[in-house]
């Protein structure tokens, strides 16, 4: 890691710790605001859980009894404060719809979601970065154009369409299963096999963004004087890009990777539905539909946490890769 302008390593680390502390503090404020907004938004939706669950079968008496049982007849600020009190003690509460502890409900789903996100990231991040390096090396060639065309096409189609195409190509011919539902006790290899199609779909959806950013960041640097110097020294183009340009291009690339990882955690409900994969997204959508506020809140907090933490990680990593960023105002 290069260190500039006479700062010692300790100074940099100290300012990074200060940044982490400050950002975590702000993150807590963000989470509080998010919970308030989500609560208000779900409250504003027409109907509540009693009406949604009873649906066509609702009568005024049964709806009233339902609300009494769940404490929904209390004013909304009281319910919010009660929920907040629980959260501060680490208690997510229980689902209004089926009385299960939300921590249990979420734990399994969260690990599924994280697994799929990591699986997709493990394929897409190396793929995107190597493609990005290759296309900047052979920029404006036929190869560059072809890679751009393919990745941009796959990002431009809606996810479910990409998923259906993969099902037709890879599932109906018998290579991979289209149902990703995990049976308990499946081995790791089996799990990777079952979830390959959703991971591939997500890979196709996120690769273009990261690849394009890698390409742009590297090409941007190729005009700088130090690269010109390296070129005058007679270094090979590959060595220039990998050794000299890439380390300085990390900051924007890391940020884009973090954004895409956050997306992989929070935005994959469509893929979950098509491949019948029990992740957090489906849980959140179901809970919003049934107005199961505590579950929605818990899922929203997890999503917000994912964004806060990933952005923070991205900033820390980019600062480490380029300590000048500490002084940007």
């Amino acid at each position: 890691m290069p260190f500039w302008d006479g700062q010692s390593r300790g100074d940099v680390l100290q300012s990074i710790w200060i940044m982490i502390a400050r950002r975590l503090g702000l993150g807590l404020v963000t989470l509080f605001v998010v919970s308030l907004l989500i609560f208000a938004a779900v409250e504003m939706l027409p109907g509540d859980i009693a009406e949604e669950i009873l649906g066509q079968s609702a009568t005024p008496e049964t709806v009233a009894a339902f609300r009494r049982e769940l404490g929904l007849d209390l004013p909304s600020y009281q319910r919010y404060l009660a929920w907040l009190g629980g959260i501060l003690q680490g208690d997510f509460g229980t689902s209004l719809a089926n009385g299960r502890p939300i921590s249990d409900l979420i734990a399994g789903r969260l690990s599924n979601t994280l697994f799929l996100a990591l699986y997709a990231a493990a394929i897409s991040v190396p793929l995107a970065i190597s493609l990005g390096i290759l296309v900047s090396l052979y920029r404006n060639s036929l190869f560059d154009r072809a890679v751009n065309l393919i990745t941009l096409s796959s990002i431009s189609f809606p996810e479910f369409f990409v998923a259906y195409i993969l099902i037709v190509l890879l599932s109906q011919s018998g290579y991979f299963p289209s149902l990703a539902t995990l049976s308990p006790g499946a081995t790791f290899a089996e799990t990777l096999y079952r979830t390959f199609l959703p991971a591939l779909t997500l890979t196709l959806v996120v690769t273009a963004h990261m690849m394009r950013m890698t390409r742009a960041a590297i090409i941007n640097l190729l005009a700088s004087p130090y690269i010109e110097m390296a070129r005058l020294k007679g270094l090979s183009p590959g060595r220039i890009i990998v050794k000299h340009a890439l380390p300085n291009a990390f900051a924007p690339i890391i940020n884009v990777i973090a954004l895409n990882l956050a997306y992989l955690i929070t935005g994959v409900v469509v893929v979950e539905v098509v491949f019948v994969y029990p992740g957090l997204g489906q849980l959140m959508v179901d809970s919003v539909a049934k107005r199961d506020i505590p579950v929605v809140q818990a899922a929203a907090l997890i999503f917000a946490c994912a964004y806060v933490l990933l952005n923070l990680t991205a900033d820390v990593l980019s600062t480490l890769s380029n300590p000048r960023l500490i002084h940007t105002r």
Binding site: Q172, P177, S178, L179, V273, V274, F275, V276
Partner: peptide, 19 residues
Amino acid sequence: ILAILDAAARLNALVTGEV
């Protein structure tokens, strides 16, 4: 008993012999 809400996914699961 599986819940497969997507009509195309459900159909596909039957055709490919998964259900």
